[in-house]
Structure formats: C-alpha cells, structure tokens
Simulated scan of single mutants.
Amino acid sequence: MFRENKSHQQPELFNSFNDLHPKIKSILEKSWAPIYYEHVFCKIDESKFAEIYCPDNGRPNFPVHILLSLEFIKHMWQT
C-alpha cells in the first residue's frame, strides 16, 4: 500500500536539534546536510514509485525519499 509521506515538511514539536549547544548547531548548519535536504531530499517525487506497491494489501510503505536518500549518500561516500 503506497502512502505519500509529507511529515518531513512540518517541524516536530519536540525536536532534539533545538536543545543542542549553539556551537554544535552552527557546525551542523554549515555542513552538507541542509543543502542536501533542500536540493535533493525535498525534490524526490515519491508518487513515481507508487506502482511498485500493492494498492489494497499490506502495510503502508516506508518513506521512499528516505530510502533513496540513503542510497544516494551510500554512493556518494563509496570509494
């Protein structure tokens, strides 16, 4: 069963990022992660993968953009 996931677009109420030390926060904000999130993660169209899931049987899918992002990162760091 395919269900599109938009939960990453709404900020969490209890987010551990808000509790980090300001120095660590600035290091994270200057890393590649926010750029990757904005330019790759948010641009993945999950609906293109709906046809590989059964429409009326089974549990909902794991978010496709997370699975694809893990593959992209894996290939980015392979030597």
Rank of each mutant, 00 (worst) to 15 (best):
Met1Lys: 00
Met1Gln: 00
Phe2Tyr: 12
Phe2Ala: 03
Arg3Gly: 00
Glu4Asn: 03
Asn5Lys: 00
Ser7Gln: 11
His8Phe: 15
His8Pro: 00
His8Glu: 06
Glu12Thr: 12
Glu12Gly: 13
Glu12Ile: 09
Leu13Cys: 05
Phe14Met: 10
Ser16Pro: 09
Ser16Glu: 12
Phe17Gly: 02
Asn18Ser: 14
Asn18Pro: 01
Asn18Gly: 09
Asp19Leu: 15
Leu20Val: 01
Leu20Asp: 02
His21Leu: 12
Pro22Glu: 13
Lys23Arg: 10
Lys23Cys: 03
Ile24Trp: 01
Lys25Tyr: 00
Lys25Phe: 00
Lys25Ser: 05
Ile27Ser: 03
Ile27Arg: 10
Leu28Ile: 14
Leu28His: 06
Glu29Asn: 07
Lys30Gln: 15
Lys30Pro: 06
Ser31Ile: 08
Ser31Lys: 13
Ser31Phe: 10
Trp32Gly: 01
Pro34Met: 09
Pro34Leu: 07
Tyr36Glu: 13
Tyr36Trp: 15
His39Thr: 15
Phe41Asn: 08
Cys42Gln: 14
Cys42Ser: 13
Lys43Thr: 11
Lys43Cys: 06
Asp45His: 11
Glu46Ala: 02
Ser47Tyr: 04
Ser47Pro: 00
Lys48Ser: 12
Phe49Met: 10
Ala50Leu: 04
Glu51Phe: 09
Ile52Glu: 07
Ile52Asp: 06
Ile52Asn: 04
Pro55Ile: 11
Asp56Gly: 12
Asp56Asn: 15
Asn57Glu: 11
Asn57Met: 07
Gly58His: 01
Gly58Phe: 03
Gly58Ala: 01
Pro60Met: 10
Asn61His: 11
Asn61Ser: 07
Phe62Asp: 00
Phe62Ala: 00
Val64Trp: 01
Ile66Trp: 05
Ile66Asn: 09
Leu67Cys: 03
Leu67Lys: 05
Leu68Cys: 08
Leu68Glu: 03
Ser69Asn: 07
Ser69Gln: 08
Ser69Tyr: 06
Leu70Pro: 02
Glu71Asp: 14
Ile73Glu: 04
Lys74Pro: 02
His75Asp: 04
His75Pro: 00
Met76Glu: 03
Gln78His: 09
Thr79Ile: 13
